[in-house]
Amino acid sequence: MAIINTAIKPFRAEAYKNGKFITVTEADLSGKWAVFFFYPADFTFVCPTELEDIADNYDEFVRLGVEIFGVSTDTHFSHKAWHDTSPAIGKIRYALLGDPTATLSRNFDVLRVDEGLADRATFLVDPDGVIQFTEVTAEGVGRNAQELLRKIRSAQYVRAHPGEVCPAKWEEGEITLTPSLDLVGKI
């Protein structure tokens, strides 16, 4: 996956958000942080637990200036039906993008071509439209919104503080590192 530090590719997707169908394009992301949260399919098992976890933490994502886009190869119509029938999915206030042509799944290189489904994958896109973070997990391994929030805070800190980096398990307010010749071999 040589996708880190590359710009997202143009796209146009129909989505379901807050009781409405909307169209989302890469232009809508300009100047904003965004998370693309790919999952295999609506009406499944691990997927609703992850999407609900994001929904339960959505206010914190918004506080950080991050918009969430849930993406599967289902249609926006399927997303609405799932939203209307599942208590977990009914909590969602972020956009669920339909990707029936697999344009987004191909753009982010997460399409399982032989199945027509997206991998379980997460991408953080910075305000310049550049991918800063990606995570892909196996089908049965769910993701964690709190860990995603920690990584977003780290990426935002590094962007705001050029020359500094965040060590493992870094939390907001903790000490960062400033790479230099003097630091080599001292960690």
Rank of each mutant, 00 (worst) to 15 (best):
M1I: 10
N5E: 14
N5H: 13
A7C: 03
R12P: 01
Y16G: 02
Y16I: 00
T23D: 14
E26Y: 13
S30Y: 01
S30H: 11
A34C: 13
V35G: 07
P40N: 03
C47L: 06
P48V: 08
T49I: 09
D53R: 11
I54K: 01
I54P: 01
D56W: 04
D59M: 01
R63C: 01
V66D: 04
V71L: 02
T73S: 13
T73L: 07
D74G: 00
T75V: 03
H76W: 02
H76M: 01
H79P: 01
K80F: 05
A81L: 04
W82V: 02
H83G: 07
D84H: 01
P87A: 00
P87K: 00
A88Y: 06
A88L: 13
G90H: 06
K91I: 03
R93Q: 06
A95T: 05
L97T: 04
A102D: 11
T103Y: 09
L104E: 05
L104S: 05
N107D: 07
D109A: 15
D109V: 11
R112Q: 13
E115W: 08
E115R: 12
E115Q: 12
G116F: 08
G116K: 08
L117N: 07
A121N: 03
T122M: 07
F123I: 08
F123Q: 09
V125L: 12
V125I: 15
V125K: 09
D126G: 13
P127T: 13
V130F: 08
Q132V: 14
Q132A: 11
E135N: 12
V136Q: 11
E139Y: 15
E139S: 15
Q146E: 13
E147F: 03
Q156M: 09
Y157L: 09
P162G: 11
P162V: 09
P162W: 05
C166E: 05
G173L: 04
E174L: 05
D182A: 15
G185R: 11
I187R: 12
